[in-house]
Amino acid sequence: MTTPHTAPGGAAPQPLPAAPGADQHPALALVNTRTIRPTGAFDDLAEPAAALDWLTGSGLLPTRRTLTPGEAGRLRALRECVRDLFTARLTGDAPDPAALAELNSALAATPFTGRLHWDGTADGPRLESRPAGGTPLDAALTRLARDAAELLSGPHAEAVAACGATGCIRYFLRTHGARQWCSQRCGDRVRAARHYARTRAAGTT
């Protein structure tokens, strides 16, 4: 599996717009926490406090708790295994056995049980899946692993794509067959580079 990187100097760049599908699939948002920026590689989860902010902001952990360096490392390890599995899915290669084992370990970290929630409002009853054991972090990792497994094996598997912009390592869900980039920003950058190449070629002829 690959190793996450940290931005030089630790300065956080401006956040990128969410890639298509990341709002619906936390596993997709997770793999996109490691990016390549103009200043170099950046890891949104490099520090425990940043990893905690991401987990709580994603609704995967309750607020007002701490995250140890080891726990943040577990989150980064899951991210890297999901990235490797996404890559294997796109290339058609056999997955790294260690990545598959990491995902399956996270899937088994916390059992979930169904609970019927009914508060008498107009919304009516709804079935919820709740953790039946393990730590809050175990439950968060299991949710992320489950979402990744569903993406890899479910109806959206063929829509998972890697951004086609040079230097971008983000993944997204294709909203239509012609989409090649994770954001308008990447698309504009590619189009600008193509325009520059055409202009330069025309100037040398």
Rank of each mutant, 00 (worst) to 15 (best):
Thr3Ala: 12
Gly10Pro: 10
Ala11Asp: 11
Ala12Asn: 12
Ala12Ile: 13
Gln14Ala: 14
Gln14Lys: 07
Pro17Ser: 12
Ala19Phe: 07
Ala27Thr: 03
Ala29Thr: 01
Ala29Arg: 00
Asn32Ile: 01
Pro38Lys: 05
Gly40Cys: 11
Ala41Ser: 06
Asp44Asn: 05
Asp44Lys: 01
Ala46Thr: 10
Ala51Tyr: 01
Ala51Cys: 15
Trp54Arg: 06
Leu55Tyr: 04
Leu60Asn: 08
Pro62Gln: 02
Thr63Ala: 15
Arg64Ser: 14
Arg65Gln: 15
Arg65Ile: 12
Thr66Asp: 13
Gly70Tyr: 04
Ala72Gly: 08
Val82Ser: 00
Arg83Val: 07
Arg83Gln: 03
Asp84Val: 09
Asp84Met: 13
Ala88Tyr: 05
Arg89Asp: 08
Gly92Glu: 01
Asp93Pro: 04
Ala94Pro: 02
Ala94Val: 07
Ala94Arg: 07
Ala94Tyr: 02
Pro95Asn: 03
Asp96Ser: 14
Leu100Lys: 07
Glu102His: 11
Leu103Asp: 01
Asn104Phe: 02
Leu107Ile: 09
Gly114Thr: 15
Leu116Ser: 04
Gly124Lys: 06
Pro125Cys: 08
Arg126Trp: 08
Thr135Trp: 02
Thr135Pro: 03
Pro136Phe: 05
Pro136His: 05
Leu137Asn: 04
Asp138Phe: 02
Leu141Pro: 05
Ala145Ser: 03
Ala145Lys: 07
Ala145His: 06
Glu150Cys: 14
Gly154Ile: 15
Gly154Thr: 12
Pro155Arg: 11
Ala159Gly: 14
Ala161Met: 07
Ala162Gly: 15
Ala162Met: 13
Cys163Tyr: 03
Gly164Thr: 07
Cys168Pro: 01
Ile169Cys: 09
Ile169Trp: 11
Tyr171Lys: 07
Phe172Met: 14
His176Arg: 15
Gly177Glu: 14
Arg179Met: 11
Arg179Thr: 14
Gln180Trp: 12
Cys182Phe: 05
Ser183Met: 08
Gly187Met: 02
Asp188Cys: 09
Asp188Asn: 15
Arg189Asp: 12
Val190Trp: 01
Arg191His: 10
Ala192Asn: 12
Arg194Gln: 10
Ala197Thr: 10
Arg198Asn: 06
Arg200Gly: 06
Ala202His: 13
Thr204Cys: 06
Thr205Ile: 11
Thr205Met: 10
